[in-house]
Design a binder for these strands. Structure first.
Lengths: 219, 219
DNA sequence: CCAAAAAGAGAGCACTGCTCTTGACGCGGC
DNA sequence: GCCGCGTCAAGAGCAGTGCTCTCTTTTTGG
């Protein structure tokens, strides 16, 4: 029953975006609107459930893609992970917008969402750690960071990304940011009448970021 | 009168986001809701007016910042333009979200918005053109692009960015994308409990992008 | 088989965007 | 002076929304 509601709600998400209507969902299920409130105490709780599911679906896709290629071919795994994120976003645009679009006004994401939300960036940075451990990836010079930023990122590394030097972490975050920007621009129509070959464009930009991070070229 | 409505609407935008209420705006002005419709035929038209104003405000800020430093110090101008965009976004978060957040469901941006929307990226790419003309910037190797992407970008350059070789244009677009991603992540709370020194973080990431684009270090 | 628990139905409140009709002003021509 | 006309605002009304409350039906368990 919970699943049925979520399924119908996902369909409405595609057309109505974040302001989907509980009453419309109820109508589609042949129920009366008040009956939904037995399962989800409020509309925001329904949204939260959808958000968590979406984060996990995206996380599954990215993690699976990153584990696909040869473990030592970091560049292939980086590309695969990025493509998986983009593919998921293109097939689930409304859910992606819910996750990474403008925050819904008046909606504060509860704590249950933060752990699923961290899965995609964690896998990307996981590639960096593996690169360091296998010696395939050499960290950028440490002196390129200002002191306060250095401290911020070492602390961040201690909590989430153990063993990543701050300068490399900054570049990893740049990659994650850029990946998000690329997908958002494409999805939100910023590439319309601009770039026709979206796949090639995306791959090229992801490759540029791989260069910036320092991922080695395949031999 | 039009201006007064827009001013009040901007205030509501800050709290209610994209789904601001015409009736609430009218209440604040001591009018009845139907009177607003004499000035804006629909809520979407009000949104459009706000969007155009916001694009122009952002464009003004970015253009002014890019013209501030020494004309030949491309890197300083790049940093200034990026900082201006971020500053504007931080002081006008709701309007930024309206421009670059998830598209409002059911709302299609009319053609009046595309020209103001192009001002920020045009100024950024304008820096690249000046760099080429003054010889301060050397374009990346042309063979790093696949053929279809090369064709796309040369065509795009012909229309909007005359004189920019496609490989450089791709890097400029990467910069624009990254700038958008950086601001969005910060504004949408993705840096909470992660990076404390936001200014330093932003500057560092913008510097990384400047490196990728090939902007020369100041002497 | 019958009581207890769970699930749905329905009415209602305050709110939304939007339309239509009605009434109040001010201004120029006769 | 007064009549028409265009501009403005007001009010009622329609269909929709999230949410709460009460009441009835259905299902379940001992």
């Amino acid at each position: 029953m919970l699943d049925e509601i979520k399924t119908v709600a996902r369909q409405h998400l595609a057309t109505d975006g974040a302001n989907l209507s509980l009453r419309a969902v109820a109508r589609d299920m042949g129920m009366v609107s008040s009956a939904i409130y037995r399962y989800f105490p409020s509309r925001d709780d329904l949204l939260t459930a959808l958000i968590i599911e979406a984060y996990n679906a995206l996380g599954d896709a990215v993690e699976a893609a990153a584990a696909g290629p040869d473990r030592l071919d970091l560049r292939a795994r980086w590309h695969a992970a990025c493509r998986a994120a983009r593919d998921w976003a293109l097939t689930h645009p409304a859910e992606y917008a819910l996750l990474y679009g403008s925050p819904v006004p008046g909606y504060a994401a509860p704590d249950d969402t933060v752990s699923p939300a961290q899965r995609p960036p964690l896998t990307l940075v996981g590639l960096l750690r593996e690169g360091l451990e296998t010696g395939l990836l050499s960290p950028p010079p440490a002196d390129e960071l200002s002191t306060p930023l250095h401290d911020d990122l070492t602390e961040l590394a201690d909590v989430f990304f153990t063993g990543i030097p701050p300068a490399l972490l900054a570049r990893g975050m740049a990659g994650w940011t850029q990946l998000f920007g690329l997908i958002s621009f494409e999805l939100f129509g910023r590439l319309n009448q601009t770039v026709a070959h979206r796949d090639e464009y995306f791959d090229h930009q992801v490759g540029l970021l791989a260069d910036l991070i320092g991922l080695p070229q395949p031999r």
